[in-house]
C-alpha cells in the first residue's frame, strides 16, 4: 500500500522525534562516560586530568556504595512484594459484585496521583512524627511508647510510603487483567467442583502472570530511581541507613560537587537499570507482534 513517496514522507515525519531523542540520549550519556574518567571537582578549579578507572574504584569501594546497593535492593524488593500481593488481593476484592464499586475504585487509585513530595511530607509529619503524628497518638492511646519511625526504621518507613504510592498502580493493572478473564472458564471450573483457592491458583494466577510481570518490570524501573521520598523524609540517613543508589549519586555530584565520582556512579546506575530494561523490552516487544 505504501508508495515510495509516502515512505519518504513518513520518514520525514518521524525524524524530529528520532533526532531529539537521539540527542537527549547520546549527549548526556557521552558526557557522563567522559566525566567518569576525569578527576573533576567543581570546588577545585583547574585541569581535569584523565585518571582512568580511579573514580570507579573509589565509588565501588566506598562504604556508602555497599550500603546503597543493599538499600536499593531492599527498597525495590520490599515495595514489589507488598504491592504485588496487596494488588492481587485488592484486585480480587474489587472484582466482586458490590455497591458503589466505582467510588471504591476511585478511593483506591487516589494515592497514585499524589505528588511524591506531598505524600512523603504528609506521612513524615502527620503520621510518623514521634510527637504529633497520628501513629504516636494511637500508640499512646493503646498505652505503648511512641515509636520514632524515621529514626528507628528509616528504610522500612520509606518502603511503606512508596508502597502506598504504588499499590494503586499494581491494583489497577491487575484488575484490568482480571476483568479480561473469560468468566465461562471460571464457571466451568466451579461446576466441576473446583474450590475457590484452586480456581485462583490454576486459572486466575496463570492468567495474571503476564500482568504481574509487567507490573514488576515497570515498577522496578521507577523504584530504582526513588529520590524525592528520601530527600524530604530522611536525607538518606541516619548515616547511610536509607541512602539508595540514586540518592548517593545525587549527594556525590550536587552536594559534594564531585563530577567525576558522580558520573562514575551514574554509569553504574545505568548498567543496573539496563539489566532490568532488557527483560522489560522483550515483554513489550513480544506484545507488539501480537
Amino acid at each position: 500500500m505504501s508508495t515510495k513517496a509516502s515512505r519518504a514522507a513518513a520518514r520525514l515525519m518521524i525524524s524530529p522525534s528520532v533526532i531529539l531523542l537521539l540527542g537527549w540520549m547520546l549527549i548526556p550519556l557521552g558526557l557522563t562516560l567522559y566525566f567518569s574518567v576525569l578527576r573533576y571537582n567543581l570546588l577545585m578549579p583547574g585541569d581535569n586530568p584523565f585518571v582512568g578507572f580511579e573514580n570507579y574504584s573509589y565509588f565501588l569501594t566506598d562504604p556508602g556504595f555497599t550500603a546503597a546497593i543493599w538499600n536499593t535492593l531492599a527498597l525495590v524488593l520490599g515495595v514489589l512484594v507488598i504491592t504485588i500481593i496487596g494488588g492481587i488481593l485488592l484486585a480480587l476484592l474489587l472484582d466482586q459484585p458490590m455497591w458503589g464499586q466505582g467510588i471504591v475504585r476511585i478511593l483506591v487509585i487516589a494515592p497514585f496521583f499524589v505528588m511524591p513530595t506531598v505524600s512523603a511530607l504528609v506521612w513524615k509529619n502527620m503520621f510518623l512524627n514521634p510527637v504529633n503524628g497520628l501513629f504516636a497518638h494511637l500508640f499512646k492511646a493503646l498505652g505503648l511508647e511512641p515509636f520514632d519511625f524515621l529514626a528507628q526504621a528509616p528504610l522500612l518507613s520509606i518502603i511503606g510510603i512508596v508502597s502506598w504510592q504504588w499499590l494503586p498502580f499494581a491494583t489497577l493493572i491487575l484488575l484490568t487483567a482480571l476483568q479480561s478473564l473469560d468468566s465461562e472458564q471460571l464457571e466451568a471450573a466451579e461446576m466441576d467442583g473446583a474450590k475457590p483457592l484452586s480456581r485462583f491458583w490454576y486459572i486466575m494466577l496463570p492468567h495474571l502472570a503476564r500482568a504481574i510481570t509487567v507490573v514488576v518490570l515497570i515498577q522496578t524501573i521507577f523504584l530504582l530511581s526513588v529520590f524525592a521520598e528520601i530527600l524530604v523524609t530522611t536525607n538518606g540517613g541516619p548515616g547511610y541507613a536509607s541512602t539508595n543508589l540514586t540518592y548517593l549519586i545525587y549527594v556525590q555530584s550536587l552536594l559534594q560537587y564531585d563530577v567525576g565520582m558522580g558520573s562514575a556512579g551514574g554509569v553504574v546506575a545505568i548498567i543496573l537499570a539496563n539489566i532490568v530494561a532488557i527483560f522489560l523490552m522483550r515483554m513489550i516487544g513480544k506484545n507488539l507482534e501480537a
Partner: peptide
C-alpha cells in the same frame, strides 16, 4: 535512570 545523566 535520570540520575545517570544528572551531572552532565
Amino acid at each position: 535512570p535520570p540520575v545517570g545523566v544528572l551531572v552532565p
